[in-house]
């Protein structure tokens, strides 16, 4: 039909520029900077020469959006490529079918493991060489933070360590890559909003680097033999927002939606 053809022709004629730049939606009201890949400023470094994964002396800036296609800017393989144990695939499918209403993060609980790198309101990485620790501060949820020990300590006895949202993380540098090894997770969070399961057996390896000023490479290896038949790896990039600070945000300030999505957890709920 003529009008249809006209619309198709118009769509085809839409400038390539739409696919090449990432325009802000009209509602955003402010121009977006060029993509991170266009910025060539090098990795900032601390006094000891290690990459600075956080802000510089000015203190402005944080890791906000991710550049992957999944929720929170993450990237995961399609489910058929993930080596789920059968029960884990069934659980993943169930969580998807329920449009994620059962996600504990609905109730503002902490984003454990890689979830911390795929939630709103970004994060900050603060290295404190003087005490051999790195802190990862989340801007969302209830502003939770985790600590990565950089002093070469061992993981604690699993019989003694209380499973937790962020587990026990030890890190070391391999060149310019921070390699973080974490065990001791509880099962009260989802690895990502898409619903990938894990168990207390999760052994998470994160490889974090800042190849240039604007980019944080975040690679994870999920090693959880109870949930997956072999370890699997994925990665995404987070972009530095150099104009803004993490804002104050407390997710449970007025969290009405939790009583709609998870009514069984409301006071007096069945």
């Amino acid at each position: 039909m003529r009008i249809g053809k006209l619309l198709i022709a118009a769509a085809a004629a839409l400038p390539l520029s739409i696919s090449l730049f990432t325009p802000a939606p009209a509602a955003e009201g402010m121009a977006r900077k060029p993509a991170a890949s266009a910025d060539t400023r090098p990795t900032p470094r601390l006094a000891d020469g290690k990459p600075n994964l956080g802000p510089e002396v000015s203190g402005i800036g944080f890791w906000d959006r991710g550049l992957g296609p999944a929720v929170g800017g993450a990237r995961f393989p399609p489910p058929e490529e993930i080596p789920f144990q059968p029960w884990a695939r069934a659980l993943y499918d169930y969580r998807q079918s329920r449009t994620f209403v059962d996600d504990p993060h609905v109730r503002c609980t902490p984003p454990g493991g890689p979830r911390q790198f795929a939630v709103p309101f970004g994060l900050q990485i603060i290295q404190v060489p003087a005490i051999q620790r790195i802190f990862v501060l989340s801007g969302g949820a209830m502003r939770p933070w985790r600590v990565i020990y950089m002093d070469g300590r061992e993981h604690p006895d699993p019989e003694v360590f209380n499973p937790s949202f962020f587990g026990h993380s030890v890190g070391h540098w391999e060149g310019d890559t921070l390699v973080v090894d974490t065990v001791g997770f509880n099962e009260q969070f989802w690895l990502h909003r898409d619903g990938y399961p894990h168990t207390h057996a999760l052994h998470l390896i994160e490889r974090i680097s800042r190849p240039n000023y604007m980019s944080l490479n975040y690679e994870i290896t999920i090693d959880d033999p109870l949930a997956y038949t072999r370890p699997w790896t994925t990665s995404w990039v987070k972009e530095w927002d150099e104009d803004e600070e993490i804002i104050e945000y407390f997710c449970n300030e007025n969290n009405r939606d939790q009583f709609v999505l998870q009514p069984e957890l409301a006071p007096g709920g069945k």
Partner: peptide, 23 residues
């Protein structure tokens, strides 16, 4: 049309702490 154009949002922009479609 404006709403249609809005789909050209930057990937990974700020999102809700739960899925829109759930509610």
């Amino acid at each position: 049309v404006l709403a249609a154009l809005m789909v050209m949002a930057p990937l990974g922009a700020a999102l809700a702490h739960h899925s829109f479609a759930a509610q």
